[in-house]
């Protein structure tokens, strides 16, 4: 596993698409928020606001999923691991770890920069206590795990379709379906089930970080397990 992780890391370091997409994420969000009052909010309020505007960032993360995961399948470079005597599960787990970390960076790099900027400029918004720090720690973990859950969609898509087009496109479609459900008459229910809704509810404090952590972990574990199960039985070309 160590060698597989090292290889994935090496590939990631030499992936120029990731750098380009990171810059695109930051620039795109800055343009989207230019002229709004978000820059005058406190750090805590900025967190809630930017989570509501994560849609565009999620789309860019899906594109990264297509390039990184779909590309590895389409070019058959992922199969090198199989031919070096590794199990299919190890190969996919190594890929998942590095991809999820990178895609989470794309999802949260701008919110992090924005919150840092707002906190330095306007303060955090509430008095910082040990209890607040613990809560904040929980929120961060919750958001990260929900990000993992969202990023597991391109993983499953890549394993099922093994090309760039559908690995990019299908998670985007699924994400839009998620947004539609979150705007349906049953918003209250869907927002407590779907990762995209949970992301907002965790950020604004409607649900507890523990619930977000649990839901994010379950979604991520479930989608990753299906991906591994599918990949272990896939006929590869």
């Amino acid at each position: 596993m160590g060698k597989l992780l090292h290889t994935e890391w090496y590939k990631f370091v030499h992936d120029k698409n990731f750098g380009a997409l990171s810059i695109a994420v930051v620039l795109f969000n800055m343009i989207m928020l230019s002229g709004t009052s978000v820059w005058d909010l406190s750090g805590q309020s900025a967190l809630t606001e930017c989570m509501k505007k994560e849609i565009a960032t999620v789309l860019l993360a899906c594109i990264y999923g297509g390039i990184s995961l779909g590309g590895d399948f389409a070019d058959r470079t992922l199969y090198h691991g199989l031919m070096t005597g590794r199990s299919r599960s190890s190969v996919l787990i190594a890929k998942t770890i590095v991809f999820t970390a990178a895609a989470n960076f794309l999802l949260f790099c701008f919110p992090f920069l924005l919150i840092l900027f707002c906190s330095l400029k306007n303060g955090w918004g509430t008095a910082i206590s040990a209890e607040h720090l613990l809560h904040g720690f929980g929120v961060v973990w919750s958001l990260l795990l929900l990000g993992c859950a969202i990023n597991a969609l391109p993983l499953l898509s890549a394993v099922c379709f093994r090309d760039i087009g559908r690995t990019t496109g299908i998670p985007i479609v699924l994400y839009f379906i998620m947004i539609l459900l979150l705007n349906s008459p049953h918003t209250a229910i869907w927002s407590k089930i779907l990762p995209a809704g949970l992301l907002i509810l965790t950020a604004d404090g409607t649900i507890s970080p523990a619930y977000g952590i649990l839901a994010g972990a379950l979604w991520f574990a479930w989608l990753t397990a299906i991906s591994i199960f599918t990949f272990r039985r896939a006929e590869l070309r």
Partner: peptide, 20 residues
């Protein structure tokens, strides 16, 4: 099956790492 954005040396380096 090659990493198209990498050089020949980088392709082999990735393979070297993977093979240990």
């Amino acid at each position: 099956a090659l990493y198209k954005n990498m050089t020949a040396v980088q392709n082999l380096e990735a393979q070297r790492i993977q093979r240990g």
